[in-house]
Design a protein around this nucleic acid. Structure first.
Length: 441
RNA sequence: GUGAGUGUAGCUCAGGCGGUUAGAGCACUAGGUUGUGGCCCUAGAGGCCGGGGGUUCGAGUCCCCUCACUCACCCCA
Protein backbone atom coordinates (compact mmCIF):
# COMPACT_ATOMS: atom_id res chain seq x y z
CA UNK A 1 0.00 0.00 0.00
CA UNK A 2 1.17 3.48 -0.78
CA UNK A 3 0.71 6.50 1.41
CA UNK A 4 1.70 4.83 4.65
CA UNK A 5 4.14 6.61 6.94
CA UNK A 6 7.64 5.13 7.33
CA UNK A 7 7.78 1.97 9.37
CA UNK A 8 6.93 2.56 13.00
CA UNK A 9 5.97 6.21 12.49
CA UNK A 10 2.46 7.43 13.03
CA UNK A 11 0.11 9.77 11.21
CA UNK A 12 -2.34 11.63 13.39
CA UNK A 13 -5.55 12.32 11.49
CA UNK A 14 -7.90 14.85 13.11
CA UNK A 15 -9.76 12.16 15.09
CA UNK A 16 -6.53 10.79 16.54
CA UNK A 17 -5.16 14.27 17.04
CA UNK A 18 -8.13 15.15 19.21
CA UNK A 19 -7.39 12.13 21.39
CA UNK A 20 -3.71 12.98 21.53
CA UNK A 21 -4.40 16.57 22.51
CA UNK A 22 -6.76 15.38 25.18
CA UNK A 23 -4.10 13.05 26.63
CA UNK A 24 -1.41 15.74 26.49
CA UNK A 25 -3.70 18.23 28.20
CA UNK A 26 -4.31 15.77 31.06
CA UNK A 27 -0.54 15.31 31.43
CA UNK A 28 0.17 18.99 31.26
CA UNK A 29 -2.61 19.86 33.65
CA UNK A 30 -1.49 17.38 36.32
CA UNK A 31 2.15 18.40 36.00
CA UNK A 32 1.54 22.11 36.36
CA UNK A 33 -0.92 21.58 39.21
CA UNK A 34 1.83 19.67 41.02
CA UNK A 35 4.30 22.49 40.55
CA UNK A 36 6.29 21.14 37.60
CA UNK A 37 7.53 23.57 34.95
CA UNK A 38 7.51 22.71 31.28
CA UNK A 39 10.64 22.72 29.14
CA UNK A 40 11.47 21.52 25.65
CA UNK A 41 14.32 20.95 23.23
CA UNK A 42 15.14 19.78 19.72
CA UNK A 43 14.66 16.13 18.82
CA UNK A 44 18.14 16.12 17.26
CA UNK A 45 21.20 15.74 19.47
CA UNK A 46 24.85 14.88 18.96
CA UNK A 47 25.12 11.13 18.93
CA UNK A 48 27.81 11.12 21.60
CA UNK A 49 25.35 12.51 24.12
CA UNK A 50 23.53 9.18 24.10
CA UNK A 51 26.71 7.12 24.01
CA UNK A 52 27.96 9.02 27.04
CA UNK A 53 24.99 7.83 29.02
CA UNK A 54 24.25 4.38 27.67
CA UNK A 55 27.42 3.15 25.97
CA UNK A 56 28.19 2.14 22.39
CA UNK A 57 25.45 -0.52 22.26
CA UNK A 58 22.85 2.22 22.09
CA UNK A 59 24.07 3.24 18.62
CA UNK A 60 22.37 0.29 16.91
CA UNK A 61 19.08 1.45 18.42
CA UNK A 62 19.40 5.05 17.30
CA UNK A 63 17.97 6.88 14.35
CA UNK A 64 21.27 8.48 13.46
CA UNK A 65 22.96 10.27 10.56
CA UNK A 66 25.97 12.36 9.64
CA UNK A 67 25.15 16.00 9.04
CA UNK A 68 26.68 18.12 6.27
CA UNK A 69 29.45 19.21 8.60
CA UNK A 70 30.41 15.60 9.24
CA UNK A 71 28.99 15.52 12.75
CA UNK A 72 27.38 12.36 14.05
CA UNK A 73 23.80 13.23 15.01
CA UNK A 74 20.84 11.25 16.30
CA UNK A 75 17.16 11.64 17.06
CA UNK A 76 16.72 11.38 20.80
CA UNK A 77 15.63 7.92 21.99
CA UNK A 78 14.63 9.35 25.35
CA UNK A 79 14.55 12.74 27.01
CA UNK A 80 16.78 12.17 30.03
CA UNK A 81 20.17 12.84 28.34
CA UNK A 82 18.85 16.10 26.89
CA UNK A 83 17.44 17.01 30.26
CA UNK A 84 20.75 16.23 31.95
CA UNK A 85 22.62 18.27 29.37
CA UNK A 86 20.36 21.27 29.93
CA UNK A 87 20.70 21.04 33.69
CA UNK A 88 24.47 20.68 33.53
CA UNK A 89 24.81 23.62 31.12
CA UNK A 90 23.20 25.98 33.63
CA UNK A 91 25.37 24.70 36.44
CA UNK A 92 24.55 26.23 39.75
CA UNK A 93 22.39 28.93 38.24
CA UNK A 94 19.26 26.86 38.66
CA UNK A 95 17.56 26.93 42.03
CA UNK A 96 17.07 23.53 43.60
CA UNK A 97 15.00 21.63 44.16
CA UNK A 98 13.84 21.80 40.61
CA UNK A 99 10.79 20.13 39.11
CA UNK A 100 10.55 20.06 35.33
CA UNK A 101 8.45 18.18 32.81
CA UNK A 102 8.33 17.79 29.06
CA UNK A 103 6.18 16.02 26.49
CA UNK A 104 8.84 14.83 24.11
CA UNK A 105 8.74 12.92 20.86
CA UNK A 106 11.37 10.18 20.98
CA UNK A 107 12.69 7.79 18.33
CA UNK A 108 14.15 4.35 18.50
CA UNK A 109 15.27 2.22 15.58
CA UNK A 110 14.01 -1.25 16.32
CA UNK A 111 11.46 -3.90 15.51
CA UNK A 112 7.93 -3.01 16.46
CA UNK A 113 5.38 -4.94 18.42
CA UNK A 114 2.26 -4.24 20.43
CA UNK A 115 2.66 -1.07 22.46
CA UNK A 116 5.86 -0.23 20.75
CA UNK A 117 6.51 2.01 17.79
CA UNK A 118 9.68 3.57 16.46
CA UNK A 119 8.39 6.93 17.52
CA UNK A 120 6.35 7.93 20.51
CA UNK A 121 5.64 10.79 22.82
CA UNK A 122 6.81 10.53 26.37
CA UNK A 123 5.75 12.57 29.33
CA UNK A 124 8.97 13.11 31.31
CA UNK A 125 9.02 14.35 34.87
CA UNK A 126 12.17 14.96 36.85
CA UNK A 127 12.99 16.25 40.31
CA UNK A 128 16.55 17.49 40.81
CA UNK A 129 18.30 18.26 44.06
CA UNK A 130 16.27 16.10 46.42
CA UNK A 131 18.18 13.22 48.03
CA UNK A 132 15.17 12.04 50.01
CA UNK A 133 12.44 9.75 48.73
CA UNK A 134 10.05 12.69 48.88
CA UNK A 135 11.06 13.14 45.24
CA UNK A 136 9.84 9.67 44.30
CA UNK A 137 6.64 10.15 46.28
CA UNK A 138 5.91 13.41 44.47
CA UNK A 139 6.64 11.82 41.07
CA UNK A 140 4.33 8.90 41.73
CA UNK A 141 1.63 11.20 43.07
CA UNK A 142 1.58 13.33 39.93
CA UNK A 143 1.66 10.35 37.55
CA UNK A 144 -1.19 8.69 39.44
CA UNK A 145 -3.09 11.95 39.47
CA UNK A 146 -2.88 11.98 35.68
CA UNK A 147 -3.99 8.35 35.50
CA UNK A 148 -6.97 9.20 37.68
CA UNK A 149 -7.79 12.09 35.37
CA UNK A 150 -7.73 9.67 32.46
CA UNK A 151 -10.24 7.46 34.25
CA UNK A 152 -7.99 4.71 35.63
CA UNK A 153 -8.29 3.77 39.28
CA UNK A 154 -6.31 1.51 41.59
CA UNK A 155 -8.54 -1.31 40.36
CA UNK A 156 -7.17 -0.85 36.86
CA UNK A 157 -3.46 -0.23 37.37
CA UNK A 158 -0.74 -1.02 39.85
CA UNK A 159 2.66 0.51 40.51
CA UNK A 160 5.29 -2.05 41.44
CA UNK A 161 8.07 -0.56 43.47
CA UNK A 162 11.48 -1.82 44.46
CA UNK A 163 15.00 -0.60 45.03
CA UNK A 164 18.09 -1.04 42.90
CA UNK A 165 20.24 -1.79 45.89
CA UNK A 166 17.88 -4.35 47.33
CA UNK A 167 18.31 -7.33 45.01
CA UNK A 168 22.06 -6.92 44.92
CA UNK A 169 22.21 -7.00 48.68
CA UNK A 170 19.85 -9.96 48.77
CA UNK A 171 21.97 -11.96 46.33
CA UNK A 172 24.99 -11.14 48.41
CA UNK A 173 23.13 -12.10 51.57
CA UNK A 174 22.23 -15.44 50.02
CA UNK A 175 25.89 -15.98 49.10
CA UNK A 176 25.19 -16.18 45.38
CA UNK A 177 28.41 -15.89 43.40
CA UNK A 178 28.94 -12.39 41.98
CA UNK A 179 29.62 -13.67 38.45
CA UNK A 180 26.13 -15.13 38.11
CA UNK A 181 24.31 -11.98 39.28
CA UNK A 182 23.60 -10.69 35.78
CA UNK A 183 22.07 -14.02 34.79
CA UNK A 184 20.11 -14.23 38.02
CA UNK A 185 18.76 -10.72 37.58
CA UNK A 186 17.55 -11.66 34.13
CA UNK A 187 15.74 -14.68 35.55
CA UNK A 188 14.17 -12.63 38.35
CA UNK A 189 12.91 -10.18 35.77
CA UNK A 190 11.08 -13.03 34.00
CA UNK A 191 9.13 -13.82 37.15
CA UNK A 192 5.43 -13.94 36.40
CA UNK A 193 6.02 -14.21 32.67
CA UNK A 194 7.42 -17.73 32.81
CA UNK A 195 6.34 -20.60 35.10
CA UNK A 196 8.45 -20.99 38.24
CA UNK A 197 9.46 -24.45 37.10
CA UNK A 198 11.24 -23.03 34.07
CA UNK A 199 12.90 -20.35 36.17
CA UNK A 200 14.00 -22.95 38.65
CA UNK A 201 15.84 -24.84 35.93
CA UNK A 202 17.44 -21.63 34.68
CA UNK A 203 18.63 -20.87 38.21
CA UNK A 204 20.16 -24.31 38.51
CA UNK A 205 21.93 -23.72 35.22
CA UNK A 206 23.46 -20.63 36.81
CA UNK A 207 24.93 -22.90 39.48
CA UNK A 208 22.69 -21.68 42.28
CA UNK A 209 22.12 -24.40 44.90
CA UNK A 210 18.59 -25.67 45.40
CA UNK A 211 18.24 -24.39 48.96
CA UNK A 212 19.28 -20.92 47.84
CA UNK A 213 16.76 -20.94 45.01
CA UNK A 214 14.03 -21.86 47.47
CA UNK A 215 15.05 -19.03 49.78
CA UNK A 216 15.22 -16.54 46.92
CA UNK A 217 11.83 -17.49 45.47
CA UNK A 218 10.15 -17.27 48.83
CA UNK A 219 11.65 -13.83 49.31
CA UNK A 220 10.36 -12.76 45.90
CA UNK A 221 6.86 -13.70 47.01
CA UNK A 222 7.10 -11.38 49.98
CA UNK A 223 5.24 -8.13 49.93
CA UNK A 224 6.48 -6.92 53.29
CA UNK A 225 9.89 -5.54 54.08
CA UNK A 226 10.64 -7.44 57.29
CA UNK A 227 12.16 -10.60 55.81
CA UNK A 228 14.50 -8.49 53.68
CA UNK A 229 15.49 -6.31 56.59
CA UNK A 230 16.18 -9.35 58.75
CA UNK A 231 18.27 -11.04 56.09
CA UNK A 232 20.39 -7.96 55.45
CA UNK A 233 20.86 -7.12 59.09
CA UNK A 234 21.75 -10.69 59.96
CA UNK A 235 24.41 -10.70 57.24
CA UNK A 236 25.73 -7.28 58.23
CA UNK A 237 24.75 -5.76 54.88
CA UNK A 238 23.47 -2.19 54.40
CA UNK A 239 19.77 -1.86 55.06
CA UNK A 240 19.33 1.57 53.49
CA UNK A 241 17.35 0.18 50.56
CA UNK A 242 14.71 -1.33 52.84
CA UNK A 243 14.54 1.83 54.91
CA UNK A 244 14.02 3.93 51.77
CA UNK A 245 11.18 1.68 50.70
CA UNK A 246 9.53 1.83 54.13
CA UNK A 247 9.72 5.61 54.16
CA UNK A 248 8.41 5.90 50.62
CA UNK A 249 5.39 3.72 51.30
CA UNK A 250 4.62 5.82 54.34
CA UNK A 251 4.66 8.94 52.19
CA UNK A 252 2.52 7.31 49.51
CA UNK A 253 -0.05 6.53 52.19
CA UNK A 254 -0.15 10.19 53.16
CA UNK A 255 -0.42 11.25 49.51
CA UNK A 256 -3.50 9.05 49.25
CA UNK A 257 -2.11 6.83 46.49
CA UNK A 258 -1.05 3.85 48.57
CA UNK A 259 -3.74 1.57 47.11
CA UNK A 260 -2.15 1.94 43.66
CA UNK A 261 1.20 0.75 44.93
CA UNK A 262 2.79 -2.49 45.94
CA UNK A 263 6.24 -3.62 46.93
CA UNK A 264 7.57 -5.94 44.28
CA UNK A 265 11.18 -7.01 44.79
CA UNK A 266 11.53 -8.46 41.29
CA UNK A 267 11.24 -5.04 39.60
CA UNK A 268 14.74 -4.26 38.37
CA UNK A 269 14.39 -2.08 35.22
CA UNK A 270 16.77 -2.26 32.33
CA UNK A 271 18.36 1.16 32.35
CA UNK A 272 21.74 1.04 34.05
CA UNK A 273 21.72 4.53 35.56
CA UNK A 274 19.18 3.94 38.32
CA UNK A 275 20.71 3.99 41.77
CA UNK A 276 17.83 3.75 44.26
CA UNK A 277 14.08 3.37 44.16
CA UNK A 278 12.76 1.96 40.87
CA UNK A 279 9.14 1.51 39.83
CA UNK A 280 6.94 0.46 36.96
CA UNK A 281 3.23 0.83 36.43
CA UNK A 282 1.15 -1.90 34.78
CA UNK A 283 -2.47 -2.65 34.05
CA UNK A 284 -3.73 -5.13 36.66
CA UNK A 285 -4.56 -7.79 34.08
CA UNK A 286 -0.99 -7.66 32.87
CA UNK A 287 -1.87 -7.73 29.18
CA UNK A 288 -0.05 -4.54 28.24
CA UNK A 289 3.45 -3.21 28.49
CA UNK A 290 4.43 -0.84 31.25
CA UNK A 291 2.41 2.37 31.41
CA UNK A 292 5.19 4.34 33.04
CA UNK A 293 8.46 3.67 34.78
CA UNK A 294 11.21 5.50 36.54
CA UNK A 295 13.36 5.84 39.57
CA UNK A 296 16.27 7.53 41.22
CA UNK A 297 19.46 8.35 39.32
CA UNK A 298 21.79 10.07 41.77
CA UNK A 299 24.99 9.91 39.72
CA UNK A 300 23.75 10.53 36.20
CA UNK A 301 24.01 14.32 36.19
CA UNK A 302 27.64 14.15 37.25
CA UNK A 303 28.36 12.33 33.99
CA UNK A 304 27.35 15.51 32.22
CA UNK A 305 29.60 17.71 34.24
CA UNK A 306 27.12 18.91 36.80
CA UNK A 307 28.04 18.67 40.44
CA UNK A 308 26.57 15.84 42.48
CA UNK A 309 22.84 16.26 42.04
CA UNK A 310 20.55 13.65 43.55
CA UNK A 311 17.62 13.23 41.17
CA UNK A 312 14.67 11.08 40.30
CA UNK A 313 12.57 10.87 37.17
CA UNK A 314 9.70 9.21 35.43
CA UNK A 315 8.76 8.47 31.82
CA UNK A 316 5.18 7.87 30.68
CA UNK A 317 4.59 6.98 27.01
CA UNK A 318 1.54 7.76 24.91
CA UNK A 319 1.17 4.42 23.13
CA UNK A 320 0.43 1.93 25.90
CA UNK A 321 -1.89 4.25 27.81
CA UNK A 322 -3.99 4.81 24.70
CA UNK A 323 -4.21 1.07 24.11
CA UNK A 324 -5.41 0.52 27.67
CA UNK A 325 -7.93 3.36 27.57
CA UNK A 326 -9.17 2.06 24.24
CA UNK A 327 -9.63 -1.45 25.63
CA UNK A 328 -11.46 -0.19 28.68
CA UNK A 329 -13.67 2.10 26.63
CA UNK A 330 -12.31 5.16 28.41
CA UNK A 331 -11.31 7.18 25.38
CA UNK A 332 -13.75 10.09 25.28
CA UNK A 333 -15.91 10.56 22.21
CA UNK A 334 -14.33 13.82 21.23
CA UNK A 335 -15.87 15.67 18.35
CA UNK A 336 -15.11 18.95 16.77
CA UNK A 337 -17.13 21.82 18.03
CA UNK A 338 -19.21 23.97 15.70
CA UNK A 339 -21.67 26.33 17.37
CA UNK A 340 -23.00 28.02 14.24
CA UNK A 341 -22.86 26.89 10.64
CA UNK A 342 -23.69 29.65 8.19
CA UNK A 343 -25.41 28.85 4.92
CA UNK A 344 -25.76 31.60 2.32
CA UNK A 345 -28.54 30.63 -0.07
CA UNK A 346 -26.53 31.66 -3.12
CA UNK A 347 -23.50 33.73 -4.04
CA UNK A 348 -25.67 36.83 -3.51
CA UNK A 349 -25.70 36.23 0.24
CA UNK A 350 -22.05 35.26 0.59
CA UNK A 351 -20.63 38.62 1.54
CA UNK A 352 -23.32 39.04 4.16
CA UNK A 353 -22.45 35.59 5.52
CA UNK A 354 -18.78 36.53 5.83
CA UNK A 355 -19.67 39.65 7.79
CA UNK A 356 -22.00 37.78 10.14
CA UNK A 357 -19.69 34.83 10.73
CA UNK A 358 -16.80 37.12 11.64
CA UNK A 359 -18.92 38.88 14.25
CA UNK A 360 -19.77 35.53 15.79
CA UNK A 361 -16.18 34.38 15.74
CA UNK A 362 -15.00 37.58 17.37
CA UNK A 363 -17.49 36.97 20.14
CA UNK A 364 -15.78 33.62 20.76
CA UNK A 365 -18.17 31.25 19.04
CA UNK A 366 -16.91 28.31 16.98
CA UNK A 367 -18.22 28.84 13.48
CA UNK A 368 -17.93 27.44 10.02
CA UNK A 369 -19.67 28.25 6.79
CA UNK A 370 -20.37 26.91 3.32
CA UNK A 371 -17.43 27.58 1.04
CA UNK A 372 -18.58 25.79 -2.11
CA UNK A 373 -21.48 26.82 -4.28
CA UNK A 374 -24.02 24.32 -3.10
CA UNK A 375 -27.74 23.72 -3.07
CA UNK A 376 -29.50 24.26 0.22
CA UNK A 377 -29.95 20.54 0.55
CA UNK A 378 -26.26 19.81 0.30
CA UNK A 379 -25.43 22.67 2.60
CA UNK A 380 -27.71 21.37 5.32
CA UNK A 381 -26.25 17.93 4.96
CA UNK A 382 -22.81 19.43 5.46
CA UNK A 383 -24.04 21.17 8.59
CA UNK A 384 -25.42 17.90 9.91
CA UNK A 385 -22.16 16.10 9.17
CA UNK A 386 -20.29 18.75 11.15
CA UNK A 387 -22.76 18.30 14.03
CA UNK A 388 -23.28 22.04 14.11
CA UNK A 389 -25.42 23.09 17.03
CA UNK A 390 -27.29 25.68 14.97
CA UNK A 391 -27.45 26.43 11.28
CA UNK A 392 -27.83 30.06 10.30
CA UNK A 393 -29.58 30.33 6.94
CA UNK A 394 -29.22 33.48 4.91
CA UNK A 395 -32.24 33.36 2.63
CA UNK A 396 -33.00 36.15 0.13
CA UNK A 397 -36.58 36.96 1.16
CA UNK A 398 -35.88 37.02 4.88
CA UNK A 399 -32.62 38.88 4.47
CA UNK A 400 -34.47 41.72 2.74
CA UNK A 401 -36.35 42.17 5.99
CA UNK A 402 -33.15 41.96 8.02
CA UNK A 403 -34.03 38.48 9.30
CA UNK A 404 -31.81 35.46 9.83
CA UNK A 405 -33.20 31.93 9.93
CA UNK A 406 -31.88 29.83 12.80
CA UNK A 407 -32.37 26.14 12.43
CA UNK A 408 -31.93 23.58 15.19
CA UNK A 409 -30.67 20.48 13.45
CA UNK A 410 -31.84 18.12 16.14
CA UNK A 411 -35.44 19.25 16.40
CA UNK A 412 -35.72 20.67 12.89
CA UNK A 413 -37.28 23.82 14.30
CA UNK A 414 -36.62 27.17 12.75
CA UNK A 415 -36.76 30.64 14.14
CA UNK A 416 -36.66 33.92 12.27
CA UNK A 417 -34.88 36.68 14.12
CA UNK A 418 -33.59 40.16 13.30
CA UNK A 419 -29.85 39.99 12.77
CA UNK A 420 -29.09 42.71 15.32
CA UNK A 421 -31.00 40.94 18.02
CA UNK A 422 -29.28 37.65 17.22
CA UNK A 423 -25.81 39.15 17.33
CA UNK A 424 -26.56 40.87 20.62
CA UNK A 425 -26.64 37.50 22.36
CA UNK A 426 -26.01 34.52 20.08
CA UNK A 427 -25.29 32.30 23.08
CA UNK A 428 -28.92 32.00 24.07
CA UNK A 429 -29.57 29.99 20.91
CA UNK A 430 -27.18 27.28 22.07
CA UNK A 431 -29.45 25.29 24.33
CA UNK A 432 -26.85 23.51 26.44
CA UNK A 433 -25.20 26.62 27.77
CA UNK A 434 -22.39 24.56 29.28
CA UNK A 435 -20.42 25.24 26.12
CA UNK A 436 -21.27 28.85 25.63
CA UNK A 437 -18.36 31.26 25.71
CA UNK A 438 -19.57 32.93 28.88
CA UNK A 439 -19.23 29.66 30.73
CA UNK A 440 -15.87 28.73 29.39
CA UNK A 441 -12.97 29.24 31.73
C1' G B 1 17.68 -11.17 14.32
C1' U B 2 13.97 -15.86 14.88
C1' G B 3 8.97 -17.78 14.12
C1' A B 4 3.78 -17.35 12.68
C1' G B 5 -0.31 -14.89 10.26
C1' U B 6 -2.49 -11.43 6.74
C1' G B 7 -2.32 -8.52 1.90
C1' U B 8 -9.05 -8.05 -3.05
C1' A B 9 -12.81 -0.57 -3.71
C1' G B 10 -11.43 5.02 0.83
C1' C B 11 -12.99 1.40 5.27
C1' U B 12 -14.71 -3.78 6.96
C1' C B 13 -14.62 -8.00 4.29
C1' A B 14 -16.97 -12.19 0.52
C1' G B 15 -14.95 -14.71 -3.57
C1' G B 16 -16.38 -24.12 -2.42
C1' C B 17 -12.31 -28.80 -6.51
C1' G B 18 -8.52 -22.80 -11.14
C1' G B 19 -13.37 -21.15 -15.75
C1' U B 20 -16.23 -15.91 -19.15
C1' U B 21 -17.32 -8.52 -18.18
C1' A B 22 -14.42 -8.91 -9.87
C1' G B 23 -18.73 -8.73 -5.46
C1' A B 24 -21.41 -6.88 -0.77
C1' G B 25 -22.08 -3.49 3.27
C1' C B 26 -20.52 1.24 4.96
C1' A B 27 -18.61 5.87 3.21
C1' C B 28 -18.59 9.21 -1.16
C1' U B 29 -21.10 11.99 -5.52
C1' A B 30 -25.58 13.11 -8.18
C1' G B 31 -30.80 12.73 -8.74
C1' G B 32 -36.06 11.66 -6.55
C1' U B 33 -39.05 19.37 -9.99
C1' U B 34 -39.10 26.16 -7.39
C1' G B 35 -36.03 27.50 -0.64
C1' U B 36 -34.47 22.82 3.78
C1' G B 37 -30.22 17.61 6.46
C1' G B 38 -30.75 12.54 8.93
C1' C B 39 -34.73 7.68 6.82
C1' C B 40 -36.02 5.54 2.07
C1' C B 41 -35.50 4.72 -3.44
C1' U B 42 -32.48 5.18 -8.03
C1' A B 43 -28.02 5.97 -10.47
C1' G B 44 -22.77 7.01 -10.61
C1' A B 45 -17.81 6.95 -9.45
C1' G B 46 -14.24 4.09 -7.33
C1' G B 47 -9.75 -2.19 -8.15
C1' C B 48 -2.68 -3.78 -12.34
C1' C B 49 -6.99 -8.75 -6.51
C1' G B 50 0.66 -5.81 -2.66
C1' G B 51 4.80 -6.60 -6.60
C1' G B 52 7.64 -10.08 -9.79
C1' G B 53 8.21 -14.85 -11.88
C1' G B 54 6.31 -19.86 -12.85
C1' U B 55 2.54 -23.99 -13.91
C1' U B 56 -1.89 -23.93 -17.23
C1' C B 57 -5.86 -23.32 -23.02
C1' G B 58 -7.12 -20.18 -18.72
C1' A B 59 -4.64 -17.71 -12.11
C1' G B 60 -7.76 -13.29 -7.21
C1' U B 61 -7.63 -18.81 -6.63
C1' C B 62 -1.98 -23.41 -7.32
C1' C B 63 3.81 -23.05 -6.76
C1' C B 64 8.39 -20.00 -5.94
C1' C B 65 10.59 -15.29 -4.81
C1' U B 66 9.99 -10.46 -2.95
C1' C B 67 7.81 -6.31 -0.36
C1' A B 68 4.47 -4.41 3.27
C1' C B 69 1.61 -4.86 7.59
C1' U B 70 0.23 -7.52 12.30
C1' C B 71 1.41 -10.68 16.40
C1' A B 72 4.83 -13.51 19.50
C1' C B 73 10.08 -14.04 20.97
C1' C B 74 14.55 -10.95 21.71
C1' C B 75 15.45 -6.09 23.60
C1' C B 76 13.82 -1.99 25.87
C1' A B 77 11.09 3.65 26.73
Amino acid sequence: MQGLPPRGMRDFYPDQMRTRNWLFSRWRESATRYGFEEYSSSVVEQEELFILKSGEEIVSQLFNFTDKGGRRMALRPEMTPTFARMIAAKGGALAKPLKWFSIAQCFRYERMSKGRKREHYQWNLDVVGVPEVTAEAELLAVALDALGGLGLSAKDVVVRISHRGLMGAVLEGLDIAQESWTGVFGIIDKRGKEPDETLWKLMEAQGVPESTIRALFSLLDENTFDPFYELLEQKGLPTASVEDLRTLFGYLEAYGVRDYCEFSPSIVRGLPYYTGIVFECFDREGTFRAVFGGGRYDSLLELFGAGPLPSAGLGFGDVVIQEILQEKGLLPGLSRRIDFFLVPFSQEERVQAFRTVQQLRKQGFYCDLVLNAKKLKGALREGARLRAKRVVLLLPDELKQGLLVLRDLESGQEERIPEERFLADPGRFLQDDSNSPSRRT
